[in-house]
Amino acid sequence: MISHRKTVTAWLLLTPMIVIILGVSGYPLIKTIYFSLTGAKLIAPDMTSIWVGFDNYIRALSSSKFREAIWHTTYFAVISVGVEMVIGVLVALLLNEAFKGRTLLRAMLILPLALPTVVNAMMWRLIYNPDFGALNALLLQFGMLDAYRSWLGDPASALDMVILADVWKNFPLVALIALAALQTVPKDLYEAATLDGAGVWNRFWRITLPAIMGPLSVALVLRTIEAFKVFDIIYVMTRGGPASSTKTVSFYVYQEAFAYMRVGSGASYALIVVLISASLIAGYMYLIRKQGEV
């Protein structure tokens, strides 16, 4: 009897929160799912939404442009997150060592993170500028380039250049998380391992990496979700060009829903993206849990 009353109290106390969560994320989600099954337009005073069933999804999946956009996004996410993880861990290892100026370097690590994405994108656009950009000047002075070139105007390099700008901004997040995790690894483990004759490489693979894997996988999941929905840096740096070689799914969804005003099919595109990121996250979760069991 008492436990029943407790349950009721608990539900009563939780109700406001549940209502808020359902209102804030549940309602928009359901509305989006509903939209994706209609031919809804962004602003159509006299047009009632027309039910189209799964037509939007069929059209999305059979569109070669959308598949291209998915490929660009996947490429962006895999490369940028991969590079961020590697650089982040390396920098964290460095900053975990005691040396002069370490505090200053650690403080400087925050700088790219603190920069708004739009400002970062504008900054890199200037760096890449084909006429007076710093990157051209630098490479030319070091003799690595014969003449100034257009970095964002060439479909072969544009996406990689956007990735570089994104990596510069976001690797510090990985580095900070890794650094925090590194400081919890007991020093005596290393001493014991050294006595047993383990080299630097072995110590990293068998002690450091497993010890920071948990926090690192959180960073991995966060960054992957972020990278998969990349929009602002693309919007500012290339607007999807040249020749649509940097058009990612989020940019595609934006165009469909807001520039062409087809909210219905825009919603179906967006939900496909959500499905992809959700399965990625599920995959990560499975891997992390499996690791915990070992």
Partner: peptide, 21 residues
């Protein structure tokens, strides 16, 4: 009415030709 979309299709085509693809 669908000018924006038609324009972006044409923009991409111009780019493809100018970039030699």
């Amino acid at each position: 009415a669908a000018y924006q979309e038609a324009s972006s299709v044409l923009q991409e085509a111009l780019q493809n030709a100018m970039l030699g693809t």
